[in-house]
Design a protein around this nucleic acid. Sequence first.
RNA 1: GCCGGGGUGGCGAAAUGGCAGACGCGGAGGACUUAAAAUCCUUUAGGGUUCAGUCCCUGUGCGGGUUCGAGUCCCGCCCCCGGCACCA
Length: 849
Amino acid sequence: MHTKDWRQWYDICRIDFAKGERGRRQKKREVNRLVERYNPTAIEKKWQQQWEQDEIYRARDDDPRAEFYALTMFPYTSGDLHVGHWYAMAPSDTYARYKRMKGHNVMLPMGFDAFGLPAENAAIKRGIHPYTWTMENIERMRGQLKTMGAGFDWSREVITCLPDYYKWTQWFFTKMFEKGLVYRAKAPANWCPVDQTVLANEQVLPDGTCERCSTVVTKRDIEQWLGKITGYADELLDFSGLQWPDAVMAMQRNWIGKSYGTEIAFGIDAPGVSEKEIRVFTTRPDTVYGVTFMVLAPEHPLVPLLTTPDRRSEVEAYVEQSRRATEIERLSTEREKTGVFTGAYCKNLLSGEDVPVFIADYVLLSYGTGCVMAVPAHDQRDFEFAKKYGLPIKVVISPPDWQREEFTEAFVDLGIMINSGQFDGTPSEEGKQAVSEYIERQGWGRRTTIYRLRDWLISRQRYWGCPIPIVYCPDCGVVAVPEDQLPVLLPEDAEFKPTGESPLARHGGFVNTICPQCGKPAKRETDTIDTFLDSNWYFIRYASPHYNNGPVESVAAAKWLPVDQYTGGAEHAVMHLLYARFFWKVVRDLGLVSGDEPFIRLFNQGQILGPDGQRMSKSRGNVVAPDEQVAAYGADTFRAYLMFLGPWEDGGPFNLDGISGIWRWLNRVWNITQDHIESITSADESATRDLRRFTHKTIKRVTNDIERFRFNTALAALMEFTNHLYRATDAGPVDTEAWHEATDALLLLTAPLTPHIAEELWAHTGHPYSIHTQAWPEYDAELAREEEVTLVVQVNGRLRDRLTVPVDIGEEQAKQLALTSEKVQPHVGGASIERIVYVPGRLVNVVLR
RNA sequence: GCCGGGGUGGCGAAAUGGCAGACGCGGAGGACUUAAAAUCCUUUAGGGUUCAGUCCCUGUGCGGGUUCGAGUCCCGCCCCCGGCACCA
């Protein structure tokens, strides 16, 4: 004992003199604590080593129990585990532990998303190799993850930057190439001038900046590899059978943006132009008679052909200007519409009218056909454009009660068609069909659907990524590297400073190769794959992480896949989760997995913010470091505190104000479960029943709460239970058996939430190792049932009295009791009673006339 | 603008249409201590009222409604967060 402890011992002895019964009990507890005090640092390390040694979290392929695949999004190898990682992983670990105790063969794997720009940028900055940087980070993060005490199966660890993983990423690429699911195309791509690479649409933030470095993104025409995600658009809109948050499904639907409409041809007759028509897409074919001009996107290929000589200089200037315009400028909502006349006209085949053709940057080349039929009377954008350039506004849908007054804004609602020839008098909805049918009969167009979703741009001009396994042969063309030559290794000695060209392009030993088909000299593709493709299938690899003959072994795939429960941040609602669903369907079509969806149940945890309500970042100085908190309170306290803050899906500002509450609670658990309670078989019967009722009620509550991911209320229930145990011992003798039932339940229920202290106390209370392989306690509904309830008595809906009555009280008796209550009487007085509402076990409401 | 999700004590938050504020933090008071820390006990929505551990009123962003009864359901606003945004 330390000097300080001797001092406390002395103090405790004094308490004995000073106090009566209560003092004696308090002394006993303090003696216990002194003998062996809750010391998380010591016990946590000990058990982590023990669990690792015994491999108790190893998910075994030959385990006959029903398997449960619990997955939390693997972290990017940024360097340090922050509070956000804990907030994401501690509850998912708790849930996995719960499932394990419920008798499932649980797989909770962990790995690292290890390719990507930050590694390369950090490497450039510090002059070390991205591989070194990444692997050192993994080493550190793995250590930090282990301090969490999470039941990860480390034997299944997957690291995406290692050849035994990316070999199969490449293999998938070649399979997709064979099926035409990846293809090359020259297209305007989002270009980040700082990262010196192209970005997928999803990686450009709404304000037009780069997701990674916040630089304003520009456009560039580059030959790119694209993934044909649009081919799966309709299937991706089908979420049937999935238990996903509505918000995520809504976001994906929104992103895919399917709309139904009609493609309509407009006639062109320009000298030297072979095209005789130009097609537009519209969702409002009922307004086709109101077209007064046509607008093409500035980049539209027909623009140079249609432009008349007298308009050429102005048109070219405008095209150049909009090409240079950044996303930010284009996105400013308040921005006035601009455009120029091309000098050309086209014919509205339905009305026979000739309308002028404009170009304007409010029309996007990438959506629809890159041109729109402008109906200023019924589209606000067209309206503004028409007003500005003095173009006619022709009303073809009559607003209700319209007295032919001039429009001050477009009438965009549905209505009755007018000025529309044979269709006059037709309601819009019907008119859409009628006009479309007419157009189809005439061969001027067809009904169709289009999508906002674009194909996924998957090549990157950077070094630290998976090389694209493609060879360009002068004779054979574009050739995929055959399986027996995979992986195409990423050379270690490349000069990887960004230049806009892929760093691999300057690595002669890499670039120069021979064609796998004809054996003649050829060049390798030098772009690398977007890291989102790496993370598309890591969860598939977990099923058989060491399998060498394919990305996944079929028996393991059938056993473990798909993922039963996936948890992760909402920031991946579109990108990762949409790409992964797409990829899964590709893998399914390759016959490697079965089922249409990779993640059956999805849960998005909220985002944890700094104490100031802002995103945690070093520059703001609002970062809470988990390592410090673990050192101060232990992992159990810290993880439980994160779960206690509020509902998991909410996230929110994080501060440490309340952490002492959890610390105190765990100390109370520590003390109460080790208190020696005298065996008194003649303990008061009702006290025993009371204790058992509380035990079983708590089992029920905690089970329900964990099942619903409400860890905050599960912990509250456990605190109440702990408080009740203290009250029970204070109140008098306790039945030994009931007491042990209670403390056992307390420890078992606590085990998934705070695994170390639960294991330690499980041993202290004389149980066999390990608590984490025990069965989850079942509650007995009969024991949990209350014998008495509080019946609320209301008069006209206002609370007047509370009565404690037996649960099985009859309706008449309850009403009688309510009416005769002293507190109720004055409020009823002599008034006549209209009726009495009785809700069994809840209330009696006396309604006066 | 459109699509999602929210708004409850000093704070984090609870609450199948039925006792608003469980649980925890913080505060106040007390016990123990030379003292402090730790621990334990009491108390803590606001206002009024009482000899009282009494009784009453108000209260879940704002305004209406449905209902015997609304934090919860409906209608209309305001504000906050997330997503999308000139999508034809």
